[in-house]
Computed example of a mutant assay.
Amino acid sequence: MRKRYYIAYGSNLNIPQMRMRCPGARIIGTSVIEDYQLLFKGSKTGSYLTIEPKEGATVPVAVWEVTEQDELSLDRYEGYPNFYYKTEMTLDIKGIRTGKIRRRQAFVYIMHEERELGIPSWFYVNTCLDGYRAFGFEEQYLFDAIEVSRRDSHED
């Protein structure tokens, strides 16, 4: 059975939610994506996290090992390929149990860049915050993304 590594930076940091969606997934470790920023973008149904290049910015992430079935489930959840597309990144991942750093290739979902900035629901933000707390990430990353979306979006 083929397994791959998946980079989570939004609601899929929420461990209970990931366990339901992807029962075969297991947490490998954490990392940081350099020169990318978090943004809330979306559609008429809501705004969700994505990442886009920005020099000097960073995004904390968790890395999951997923089965083929888990990846298909993630594809559906992320609206792949219409809402989000997939790309590969190579990251230095700090092991959850060992603390060892290993360089690995993993896939990540990124929202199509032409989508507009928008304000997320508090339910979605709280789902992401639960994940941030579980992994010990600084919550300010999420609050900064909300602030950018508020300031630069076309919503009232």
Score class of each variant (00 low, 15 high):
Gly46Ala: 15
Gln69Glu: 15
Thr50Tyr: 03
Thr50Gly: 07
Asp92Asn: 08
Tyr84Trp: 05
Gly46Asn: 12
Asp75Arg: 04
Pro53Asp: 09
Tyr77Leu: 01
Leu72Asn: 10
Pro53Trp: 14
Arg76Thr: 09
Leu91Cys: 06
Leu91Ser: 04
Leu72Cys: 08
Pro53Tyr: 13
Tyr80Gln: 02
Leu91Lys: 01
Thr67Leu: 05
Arg76Ile: 07
Tyr77Ile: 02
Gln69Lys: 14
Glu52Phe: 11
Pro81Val: 00
Ala62Cys: 14
Asn82Phe: 11
Tyr85Met: 03
Asp70Thr: 00
Lys94His: 08
Asp70Pro: 01
Pro53Cys: 11
Val59Ser: 13
Gly79Gln: 03
Glu68Asn: 12
Lys86Gly: 08
Met89Gly: 05
Asp75Gln: 00
Glu52Tyr: 13
Lys86Gln: 15
Thr90Met: 10
Tyr77Thr: 01
Leu72Ser: 07
Val63Glu: 11
Leu74Phe: 02
Tyr48Ile: 14
Glu55Gln: 15
Glu65Arg: 03
Asp92Ala: 14
Pro60Asn: 09
Pro81Thr: 00
Val59Arg: 11
Leu49Met: 04
Gly56Gln: 06
Thr87Cys: 12
Glu65Phe: 03
Met89Asp: 08
Asp92Pro: 02
Lys94Leu: 14
Thr90Cys: 09
Glu71Ala: 04
Val59Leu: 09
Leu72His: 08
Gln69Leu: 12
Ser47Asp: 02
Ile93Ser: 06
Ala62Thr: 13
Gln69Met: 11
Val66Tyr: 00
Val63Ala: 13
Glu78His: 01
Gln69Cys: 08
Glu65Val: 02
Gln69Val: 12
Ile93Gly: 07
Gly79Tyr: 04
Trp64Met: 13
Leu72Arg: 12
Thr90Val: 14
Glu68Tyr: 13
Val59Glu: 12
Val66Arg: 03
Val61Arg: 09
Glu78Ser: 07
Ala62Asp: 06
Lys94Tyr: 07
Ala57Asn: 13
Tyr80Met: 06
Thr58Ile: 12
Ile93Pro: 08
Leu74Met: 05
Asp70Trp: 01
Thr67His: 01
Asp70Leu: 04
Glu55Trp: 13
Glu78Trp: 05
Asn82Met: 10
Pro81Leu: 02
Glu78Phe: 08
Leu91His: 04
Glu71Ile: 00
Glu88Val: 03
Ser47Thr: 13
Tyr80Glu: 06
Glu88Arg: 02
Ala57Met: 10
Leu91Gln: 02
Val61His: 08
Ser47Pro: 08
Ser73Trp: 04
Pro53Gln: 15
Tyr80Val: 08
Thr90Glu: 15
Lys86Val: 06
Met89Ile: 12
Glu71Trp: 01
Lys94Pro: 01
Val63Trp: 12
Thr90Lys: 11
Asp75Leu: 03
Glu71Asn: 01
Thr90Asn: 05
Tyr48Gln: 09
Glu65Met: 07
Val61Trp: 10
Phe83Leu: 14
Val66Phe: 00
Glu71Leu: 02
Thr87Phe: 04
Ala57Leu: 05
Val59Lys: 14
Tyr77Lys: 00
Glu65Pro: 01
Gly46Thr: 10
Thr90Gly: 00
Leu91Pro: 06
Tyr85Gln: 00
Thr87Gln: 11
Asp70Val: 02
Thr67Pro: 00
Ile51Asp: 12
Gly56Val: 10
Val63Tyr: 14
Lys86His: 07
Pro60Lys: 09
Val61Glu: 09
Ile93Met: 09
Val61Ala: 03
Glu68Met: 11
Tyr85Phe: 06
Tyr84His: 09
Gly79Thr: 02
Leu72Thr: 04
